[in-house]
């Protein structure tokens, strides 16, 4: 799942998809925590998952706001359009 997200991140140019892929990666980590927690019979993993979900939400909210603004500046959602700074 983590790799799936990563692959999507690297291949998709649409910023919305990019954000989604990041979400996928985060969720993959969350899942990994839950699995690890269950291995040791601790609740810590699940606690971490909650943290992750909360943080992902915060991130997506900021992210979407920015993407919106980005779309206003560039009439596209192509992430490669944002390459004014390089070199």
């Amino acid at each position: 799942m983590f790799l799936l997200g990563l692959a999507g991140l690297l291949t998709r140019r649409n910023l919305i998809f990019t954000l989604m892929c990041v979400e996928v990666m985060l969720n993959a980590s969350g899942l990994a925590f839950v699995a690890a927690g269950s291995r040791w019979g601790q609740v810590d993993g699940q606690v971490m998952f909650l943290f992750i979900v909360a943080m992902a939400a915060a991130e997506v909210s900021v992210g979407l706001a920015m993407v919106l603004q980005f779309h206003r500046e560039h009439p596209t959602l192509d992430s490669d359009a944002g390459d004014e700074m390089r070199g």
Partner: peptide, 19 residues
């Protein structure tokens, strides 16, 4: 985008270590 990705890496790594 990148910081979120790196967070994902960090988290996944932590999860692996935890496990």
């Amino acid at each position: 985008v990148l910081a979120a990705t790196s967070s994902a890496f960090l988290l996944f790594g932590m999860a692996l270590l935890y496990s």
